[in-house]
Amino acid sequence: MSHTAPIPSHRKPRRSSSKLALRAGVAGGVLSTIAVAASPAQAEPVTETIEMPTLTNVDLSGALSNAVAASAEATEQSALAQDLRAQEDAAAAAAAKDAKKAKAEAERKAEAERKAKEAEEKARAEAERASRTSERTTLSASSSDNGGGSDSGSSYSAPATGSAAAIVAFARAQVGDAYVMGATGPNAWDCSGLVQAAYRQAGIDLPRVSGAQSSMGTSVSLDNLQPGDILYWGSRSGSYHVAIYVGGGNFVGAQNPSKGVVEQSIDWDRPSGAVRIL
């Protein structure tokens, strides 16, 4: 082979542009057909138009204001309801307290009236017994025939009668009650409170404290006591304790918190003196 001879090419011969175009057109047509066959039926276009309301700034602000006003009104109503309930609860508590106080006061008055009635009945009974005893003593004295003139000097001390009997009966009716400083009954007493209440049964108003009570009336000897006399301990104008002589050498007094109201002999704690008011 001549060195000038043309060397055969190993490349494939080029296809002509017309053949390439033809092949591309066929391929495109086939693909288009397949795509059309595979795609679903096209939906009908929407022809109806829905108009939405237009919200302006004025509408939004008005709605917000109404909502805020409604919320504020609801809050105010709730607060008013709570305040009303609180007032009702307070009124109910106050009414219950007043009712309890009124009941206690009514019970106290009823108890005092009961004791006063018992004291009055007891005083009446003692007065009747004293009257019968006095009649028997008078008869006995008039029927005596010893002819010697006067008796041996012994004296008869009659039981309490009249106002003194009412005082004594009331004092004895309180025996067993408690002693409480400053108490004036009906179930607890201090010494002067008991004396004052007892004398009230006879229509006599005494001062409240023992020193003033012992300054009333006239001073009497402890050897010449009568039922209803006021016994005192300490000086007459400055006594620290008082009690009521009930006869038979005994007195009734509100002694102290451990003993309460008792009846006992004057020899148990000899008083400093006595005064007579009746």
Rank of each mutant, 00 (worst) to 15 (best):
G29M: 01
N66W: 12
A67H: 13
V26K: 07
T54H: 10
S78L: 02
A79F: 01
N57H: 09
A63N: 06
V46W: 06
S65V: 08
T33E: 05
G62N: 12
T33W: 05
S65F: 13
P53A: 07
V36Q: 07
T56K: 00
E51W: 14
S78M: 00
G28L: 13
A38F: 01
S39F: 05
T47F: 08
P45Y: 12
A69N: 07
A37W: 00
L31Y: 05
V30P: 05
V68Y: 12
G62P: 06
A27P: 07
V58Y: 15
S65D: 15
A67L: 12
P40C: 01
V68Q: 12
G29T: 10
A70L: 08
A79I: 00
T75G: 10
S32K: 02
M52N: 11
S39D: 00
A69C: 04
A69K: 09
V30M: 02
A38T: 04
P45R: 04
A41C: 01
A79T: 03
P45G: 09
A70R: 13
S61Y: 06
G28W: 00
L55E: 06
A79V: 00
A24R: 03
V58S: 05
V26D: 08
G62Y: 12
A67P: 04
I34T: 09
A43I: 10
S78W: 05
T47G: 08
P45M: 07
S71M: 10
T54N: 10
E76S: 15
L64R: 12
V30E: 05
A37P: 03
E44M: 11
A24D: 10
A67Y: 09
G62W: 09
A74K: 06
A37M: 04
M52H: 08
S61K: 14
I50H: 11
T56P: 05
T47I: 09
E48I: 04
E76G: 15
P45N: 04
A43N: 08
A63R: 05
P40T: 00
G25N: 04
A27V: 13
L55N: 03
N66G: 04
L31I: 01
T56C: 04
L55T: 03
I50V: 12
T49W: 14
Q77G: 06
Q77D: 02
L55A: 11
N57A: 07
A43Q: 06
P53K: 01
A63E: 06
A35H: 02
G62K: 15
A63K: 05
V36N: 07
G25E: 08
A63F: 13
V58R: 13
T56E: 02
E73F: 14
E44S: 11
L60I: 09
A37T: 03
T47H: 10
Q77N: 13
V36A: 12
A24M: 11
E44A: 14
M52R: 09
N57I: 04
L64G: 14
L60N: 10
E44I: 05
I50D: 13
T47K: 02
A74Q: 00
M52K: 08
T75Q: 07
Q77C: 07
S71W: 02
S61T: 14
V30W: 03
T33F: 13
P40M: 03
E76A: 15
A74H: 01
Q42I: 00
A24K: 02
S78K: 01
I50R: 06
L64I: 08
S65N: 14
V46A: 13
